[in-house]
């Protein structure tokens, strides 16, 4: 039985340049700041950085890794914090914050070197 306060197994993601680029392309996001370091730096960034579609996807993966294949993802709401540049390591941690029948609400934080990169809430049913 899932109970409020249950913590999810942590997920660590090495945001290598390959990871940043391959996820950007897999999400069909061709903005140069996600694959071209020179252009990213010219625009004031330290390096290429993860795109938002990937953030949502990683939060989804983090929760379904724990919830299992039977879970249905109903809602993913994220707030974006500091950027996750290439060579960062993101650590996702999460906790069940509400259980209502089959509905489970999980709060998620993905933290990198610079601080909180993504803070979110996921609603799943199972």
């Amino acid at each position: 039985m899932t109970a409020v306060g249950e913590t999810l197994p942590e997920l660590s993601i090495d945001a290598t340049p390959t990871f940043v680029v391959s996820t950007a392309i897999a999400t069909r996001d061709f903005q140069d700041v996600h694959h071209d370091r020179d252009k990213a730096q010219a625009r004031g960034s330290a390096d290429i950085f993860l795109n938002i579609l990937t953030d949502t996807g990683l939060v989804e993966r983090f929760v379904t890794d724990w919830a299992g294949p039977n879970a249905r993802v109903k809602n993913i709401s994220i707030r974006l914090g500091v950027p996750a540049y290439a060579y960062d390591t993101l650590t996702f941690s999460g906790e069940v914050t509400a259980v209502d029948g089959d509905d489970i609400t999980v709060s998620v934080v993905g933290r990198g070197k610079l601080g909180d990169h993504v803070i979110g809430t996921v609603l799943v049913t199972r």
Binding site: I13, F19, S22, T23, I25, A26, T27, T54, G57, L58, E60, R61, T64, D65, P69
Partner: peptide, 12 residues
């Protein structure tokens, strides 16, 4: 492409 890039192993 998505599941490879993100490392998502959900079989569904």
């Amino acid at each position: 492409n998505w599941v490879e890039a993100l490392g998502d192993t959900n079989p569904i």
